[in-house]
Design a protein around this nucleic acid. Structure first.
Lengths: 215, 215
DNA sequence: CAGTAACCTGACCGAGCGGTCAGGTTGGGC
DNA sequence: GCCCAACCTGACCGCTCGGTCAGGTTACTG
């Protein structure tokens, strides 16, 4: 759907509708998760159902566009934090923002928490997210602010874990995740000296490749 | 569907089919989550779709029966551990088994991780699970084996969090959760001295009551 | 201002879902 | 061995979903 430079630029109403669609879809996915229906998204955007599929061939493409944007934002924030003076504080801020985003977006939880989305852009984005997390942990590790066996991928995985811990009480106690982030971060700090039992995940890709056809 | 004592006991084929149904449903829910279809469950059990609804009025009733059983098993295990000589080891074993169960059953993750199931039996079971976890943490706390501000409800919530941390790599690294359980348990131990920021969840019920009609 | 390609619309489709029920089958009391 | 209530079966229903498309509309070009 992206116009190649040779073709005529998109019409004014098309770009406006695309904007409305993306905003409505982001809201709907955040609220209801990936199962938000196309019909509801179209209604929120004030456009017809068919128009949705004019901009995105499948629902998964639409979801991938939104998730990709969110991941890119997180990557940008991590990059910005990469040269902060206090690496441990920077890492904590990175994790805080990450869990905050998860707590506000159900679809994002599903996409990051399951190897469901096959979109290559999203997968690449998650890999870049792991890389920037690796940078942050590297710096903190070099200053002995965190235990030596924590990797960037650990940090990214822990975002989902911290959020999930508080998720059952999300509406009643929307800030409860701060409690568990603090607990986990205490576990990450250098004070704890016992080595972790299972080796860190070391594969290149964050999610499993090629999940079998079932589901 | 439970026979009151006055009525005639169930027929032999009925009890056999009920057994087949429960086993098949447990497998299907574990594999595909709560969205496993009644049609697939019936096929696995070798019975007709209509027979499923003869034993359980709705799909949710069937799910609740299986989830309730799993929770009861966990409660029983926790009770058994309540008088172990080493309370910290007992708490760790309780958490280990809990995460193990979560890692093997997708439906269980959904039911414990979201306030979705309205079944009163399941909710009561979760409350009893929190109580037994409270007993275990109490004993460990009294021996100063864990930090003083950890509650039983924290422990139960952390089960879901630890599992979720490793869940994206579940098929590739099925034992990865042990790494994060160790990390979290290090955070629970008394060594870490910073008090946790957010107060522990203190409401009586584990899950939110009366989620609005939407989804 | 006319012409056209891009765009939008909403009725429509097929698949899959939970749940129902008339009618055939069978276990077990007598 | 008879009989009937309990049980089982599978076609069927209504609904929602993602996705399609013929036909009407509209923004740009020249």
């Amino acid at each position: 759907m992206t116009n190649s430079p040779s073709t005529r630029p998109a019409r004014a109403d098309a770009v406006r509708n695309r904007r409305l669609l993306l905003d409505a879809a982001a809201d709907a996915f955040a609220e209801h998760g990936t199962e938000a229906s196309i019909a509801e998204i179209a209604q929120r955007a004030g456009i017809a159902k068919g128009t949705v599929f004019r901009h995105f061939a499948t629902k998964e493409d639409l979801l991938a566009a939104i998730m990709g944007q969110m991941i890119d934002d997180l990557v940008a924030m991590g990059t910005r934090l990469s040269d902060a003076e206090d690496p441990a504080a920077a890492l904590l801020e990175f994790m805080t923002t990450g869990v905050e985003v998860l707590a506000r977006d159900r679809a994002f939880c599903e996409v990051v928490g399951r190897p469901s989305l096959r979109d290559p852009g999203v997968r690449a984005g998650i890999d870049r997210l792991c890389e920037v997390a690796e940078t942050l942990t590297d710096r903190a590790r070099r200053r002995h602010a965190i235990r030596p066996d924590i990797t960037g991928r650990d940090v990214v995985l822990l975002l989902g874990g911290v959020h999930q811990t508080a998720a059952p009480l999300l509406t009643t106690e929307p800030e409860l995740w701060r409690r568990y982030l603090a607990l986990v971060f205490d576990g990450i700090r250098a004070d704890a000296t016992r080595p972790l039992p299972h080796p860190a995940p070391d594969m290149l890709r964050f999610v499993e490749t090629d999940p079998p056809p079932g589901a």
